[in-house]
Amino acid sequence: MQATSTLDQAEAPPAVKSRSFKRAFADVREAWDHRELWGHLGWQDIKQRYRRSVIGPLWITISMGTTALALGLLYSVLLDAELPAFLPYITAGFIIWNFILGCVTEGTDVFIANEGLIKHLPAPITVHVMRMVWRQVLFLAHNLVIYVIVMVIFFSTLSEPYRMTAGGTLQPGISWTILLAIPAFVLLAVNAVWVALLFGVISTRFRDIPPVVNSFINLVFFMTPIVWDADILTKVTKTGEDSQWRVLIAELNPVYHFVEVVRAPLLGHYVDWHHWAVVGGFTVLGWFGALVILRNYRARVSYWV
C-alpha cells in the first residue's frame, strides 16, 4: 500500500503539469518556433496538389476569377447594382470567404488528416493547425491576383465616392485606408488558428462534427453579405421597425464582421467601429476557449486520431 501511494504521488505532479495553461501556451509558442517546418509543409501541399498540372496553382486564380465574374454579372442585374462597383465587391468578398471556408472546413479535419504525422512526428499539435492556415494564406495570395486585375479595370469608379446600388450608402472611395486591410487580415488569420484548434480537437473526439459543420457553413454563406449588399436589407422594407429587424440578420452573423473589416478597406468603404469591436471580442473569447481545450485535451489527440 505504501509503495502504491508513493507511486501515485510521484506521478501526480506530471499529470497536473500537463493540464496547465502554461503547457497550452507552450504548445502554441513551440509551434511558432517550428515555422520553418509548417511553412515548408504548406508549400509542399500546394505543389503536391498541382503536381502534374501544366499551369499549376494558377488554376486557383482561374477558378476564383470565373466564379466572381459569373456571380457579379448575375447579381448586379438581380439587385440593380452598378457593375463597376458591384463586381469588385463580390470579388473581394469571395476571396475572403474562401479563406474563411477553407480554415473552418479543413480545421475540423486538421488532426484527423494528419494522423500519421501526429503519431510519428514529435511536434506540438498546433504545428498542424499552422500548416493548414498557412496553406490557406497561400491560396488567398493566388486569389488576390483577381482582385488586382479587377481594381485596375474599375479603379476610376472606386477611387471616387460611389454607391453600389441606387439609394445605397455613399462610400468614400479608395484611399490610404486600404492599409487597414493588413491588420484586419492578420486578425482574421489569428482567429483562423483558434477556430481550427477548437473545432479540430472536438472533431477528433466526435467524428460527427465535420459533416455538421460542412452542412451548416452553406447556410452561413447565404446569410452573409457576400453576393448581396447589406444595404438591401433596409431597402426592401417600408417601416423602420421592420428594417431594424432585417438588419439583425447580418449584424448577428459574426462572419459578416470578419469579412467586412477586410473587404471594406479594399473597396474604399467606410468601416464602422462596431465591426472591429466584434472581431476583437471574438478573438479574445475564441482564444480563451481554444486554450482551455488545448489545456485539457492536447495530450489526448494522439490517442483519438
Rank of each mutant, 00 (worst) to 15 (best):
S5C: 13
T6L: 15
A10Y: 12
P13Q: 07
R23A: 12
A26S: 13
A26E: 10
A26V: 05
V28K: 00
R29F: 10
E30R: 08
L37Y: 15
G39S: 10
I46V: 14
I46H: 09
K47C: 05
K47I: 09
Y50S: 00
V54H: 06
G56K: 02
T61W: 06
T66P: 13
L69M: 15
A70H: 06
V77Y: 12
D80T: 11
A81C: 02
E82K: 14
P84G: 02
I90W: 02
G93S: 05
I95T: 04
I96M: 11
F99G: 07
F99T: 06
T105I: 14
T105K: 06
V110T: 05
K119N: 11
K119Q: 15
H120A: 07
P122L: 06
I125N: 04
V127Y: 10
W134H: 07
Q136R: 10
L140S: 12
H142Q: 15
L144P: 10
V145S: 07
Y147N: 09
I149A: 15
V150L: 03
F154E: 09
L158W: 05
S175L: 08
W176K: 08
I178K: 03
A181S: 15
P183C: 08
P183T: 06
A184Y: 11
L187A: 14
L197E: 07
F199R: 00
V201F: 02
I202S: 03
S203L: 05
T204L: 07
R205E: 01
F206R: 01
R207C: 03
P210D: 04
P210Q: 02
P210W: 02
F216H: 07
T224R: 03
P225W: 02
P225K: 01
V227W: 08
V227S: 01
V227D: 04
V227I: 15
T234M: 10
K235A: 04
T237V: 13
T237W: 07
K238W: 12
T239D: 12
G240T: 10
L248H: 04
P254T: 05
F258E: 14
V259E: 12
E260G: 06
V262S: 01
G268H: 08
Y270M: 11
D272M: 10
W273E: 09
H274R: 13
W276Y: 10
W287M: 02
F288T: 04
G289F: 11
G289Y: 08
A290E: 00
L294A: 00
L294H: 01
R295K: 12
R300T: 11
Y303Q: 13
